[in-house]
C-alpha cells in the first residue's frame, strides 16, 4: 500500500534537461523510482541518465504511459506545463517550483478538481513511499520503509523529522509535502483521509506552521480519525506581520497563531510536540 505513489508508478520528469531536472532525475533513478520519460521542448531524442527525452507530454504518453509527472519548470511556465500534463491524462502532478503566481495556481487547482487530478505543490519537496518510489527533491538516505505517514507544509523540516523517525527505528509509509504556498493542491485533510484509509499506515505525523487555517481545519477531521496523530508546528517565536519565507507563513489580524493552532490540534486529540525531537517519543507513546 502507501498513498498516491508506489513501485508501479510511471514517472515523467518535465524540464528534465535543466540543471535541477538532470540532478534530481539521477537522484530519483538511484532511489529506484520508475522514471519512464522526460519532457523538454526542442530536446526530444536526447537521454538523461538513460531516460528518453520527448518534446511533448502527448509524445511521452504515447510512448509508454505516464501515471505521475514532476515539474522542474520556471515559475512563469508552470501553468502551461501543468495543463499540458492534465490535458493529456496524467493523474498526479507534482509541482516542485516555487514562486508560482497564485492566480496560476488557482487556475490549475480548479481544472484538477474538475478532472479528479491530484496536484502536489506548488513549492513542495514532493512525495516518497520509502523503498518504492520517490518523486521530488528530498535526500535519498533519510527514509526507511515502515508504517508512519508524514504530511508536511515544509520540506526541510519534514526531512528533520523523517530522519529522527528513521533513527528511532520508525519507518514511513509515505511522506508528502503539501507545499509552502497559499494555494496548493492538497490539504492536510485530503492526505489524512488517505492515511486513515491506508492499511499500511498506523500513525500520522503532521508538520505544520503558523499562518492560514490549514491546521485548524485539519483538527476537525483528526477528532474523527481512528489512527493517532502527532503534530509539530514551526513558528512559535515568529512576530506578527512578518512573512516567514513561505507565502502562507504570516500571522495577520491575529489569525494563524501558534497558540491557536496548538489549542485546536490538542483539542482534537492530536499529540503536539513542542520541539522536533519530541516527535518520535510521542509517537511511541501513542502507538
Amino acid at each position: 500500500m502507501a498513498i498516491i505513489i508506489d513501485e508501479s508508478t510511471r514517472v515523467l520528469v518535465q524540464g528534465i534537461t535543466g540543471n535541477q531536472g538532470r540532478f534530481h532525475t539521477r537522484q530519483m533513478l538511484e532511489y529506484g523510482s520508475n522514471i519512464t520519460g522526460g519532457v523538454s521542448p526542442g530536446k526530444g531524442g536526447q537521454e538523461v541518465g538513460g531516460v528518453p527525452v520527448y518534446n511533448t507530454v502527448a509524445e511521452a504518453m504515447a510512448a509508454g504511459g505516464v501515471d505521475a509527472a514532476v515539474l522542474f519548470i520556471p515559475a512563469p511556465a508552470v501553468k502551461d506545463a501543468a495543463f499540458e500534463n492534465m490535458e493529456n491524462g496524467v493523474k498526479t502532478i507534482v509541482i516542485i517550483t516555487e514562486h508560482v503566481p497564485v492566480h496560476d495556481a488557482m487556475d490549475i487547482m480548479a481544472y484538477a478538481a474538475d478532472k479528479g487530478i491530484t496536484v502536489v505543490g506548488p513549492n513542495t519537496f514532493g512525495l516518497i513511499s520509502p523503498g518504492k518510489c520517490k518523486i521530488g527533491i528530498m535526500p535519498n538516505q533519510i527514509y526507511k520503509p515502515g508504517t508512519i505517514g508524514i504530511v508536511a507544509r515544509s520540506g526541510t523540516l519534514s526531512y528533520e523529522i523523517a530522519n529522527s523517525l528513521s533513527a528511532a527505528g520508525m519507518g514511513q509509509s509515505t511522506v508528502i509535502g503539501l507545499g509552502g504556498d497559499r494555494i496548493v493542491g492538497l490539504s492536510f485533510v485530503d492526505v489524512l483521509e488517505r492515511f486513515e484509509a491506508d492499511a499500511e499506515t498506523e500513525a500520522v505525523v503532521l508538520v505544520g506552521e503558523i499562518g492560514g487555517n490549514a491546521e485548524e481545519v485539519a483538527s476537525d477531521y483528526i477528532s474523527k480519525m481512528t489512527k493517532p496523530v502527532v503534530a509539530f508546528l514551526a513558528g512559535k517565536s515568529a512576530p506578527p506581520g512578518k512573512r516567514m519565507g513561505h507565502a502562507g507563513a504570516i500571522i495577520e489580524r491575529g489569525m494563524g497563531t501558534y497558540d491557536g493552532k496548538v489549542a485546536a490540534l490538542s483539542g482534537s486529540g492530536a499529540h503536539v510536540a513542542r520541539l522536533p525531537w519530541e516527535v518520535p517519543e510521542l509517537l511511541k507513546k501513542a502507538l
Partner: peptide
C-alpha cells in the same frame, strides 16, 4: 541561516527554547 522556511522557523523556535 537555514534552508527552507519551515526549518528556519523551527531553528528560531529552538534558539528561543
Amino acid at each position: 541561516m537555514a534552508n527552507g522556511a519551515g526549518i528556519t522557523m523551527a531553528t528560531l523556535d529552538i534558539i528561543e527554547h
